[in-house]
């Protein structure tokens, strides 16, 4: 039952994401200053710090409630494009998780997939537009593919992390078609998309906290 994702496991993931966002805040902002408006790190850090505080203030919350709390907090605190997009990601995950209590690996993957779908609709973004979707979509594909092939959650999340990072790195070769970077046209080529970088941190945080291999640290 080590692949069960209960409230403590979800909290560990969300805190780890907040920690990684804080640690990489300057890096994310530096990426954003090249093709955006130099605020992705500070905005995400402010939002995830608030989200971490919100879930700490509600120790009894079930997985679905936790995800909803994070989504609402991000919508209310981040602003910009990242607020509605990350907010929608967690709100759709919450809706998919429902009130059923702990998630199994397949349930977590399904929730993450629902979150990705929500981001694509809210942002009107496709894979290849040079956005966070370019990291999240291959990660969800890898996670679902590995789980369907019988892999354990930690193995599947490791594959998802690799896929997310590859998707993130590939954004550097693309022309931005969404968001502020799109105003630069061809000049956006050669720069990694900041949203794909923060989305990769989200997947990395999951690999570090969820599944068997993470038990020792969680």
């Amino acid at each position: 039952m080590t692949d069960t994702i209960d409230s403590p496991a979800l909290r560990a993931w969300l805190h780890e994401f907040a920690r990684r966002v804080a640690e990489n805040s300057d890096h994310l902002t530096a990426l954003d200053s090249e093709i955006g408006d130099a605020d992705h790190g500070s905005n995400m850090d402010r939002g995830m710090a608030a989200a971490a505080a919100a879930i700490d203030s509600d120790p009894g919350a079930e997985p679905g409630q936790l995800l909803k709390l994070v989504g609402r907090t991000l919508v209310s605190t981040v602003g910009g494009a990242a607020g509605p997009l990350y907010g929608t990601l967690f709100l759709r995950m919450a809706a998919a998780a429902g009130d059923a209590g702990p998630l199994d690996a397949a349930g977590f993957a399904k929730a993450l997939h629902a979150g990705l779908d929500g981001v694509m609709v809210r942002g009107r973004a496709e894979v290849g537009d040079k956005t966070m979707v370019d990291a999240l979509a291959p990660a969800v594909d890898a996670l679902e593919g590995e789980l369907a092939a019988g892999a354990a959650l930690d193995v599947a999340l490791a594959a998802a992390t690799t896929a997310a990072a590859a998707g993130r790195d590939a954004t550097a070769d693309r022309v931005a078609r969404k968001g502020r970077a799109s105003y630069l046209g061809e000049r956006s080529i050669g720069h990694q998309d900041p949203g794909s970088a923060s989305a990769t941190l989200l997947v990395e945080a999951a690999a570090a906290t969820l599944g068997t291999a993470a038990d020792g640290q969680a």
Partner: peptide, 11 residues
């Protein structure tokens, strides 16, 4: 008004 160069939030 949002943060500097960042949209206000829905609230």
């Amino acid at each position: 008004p949002g943060q500097v160069f960042s949209s206000p939030v829905p609230d």
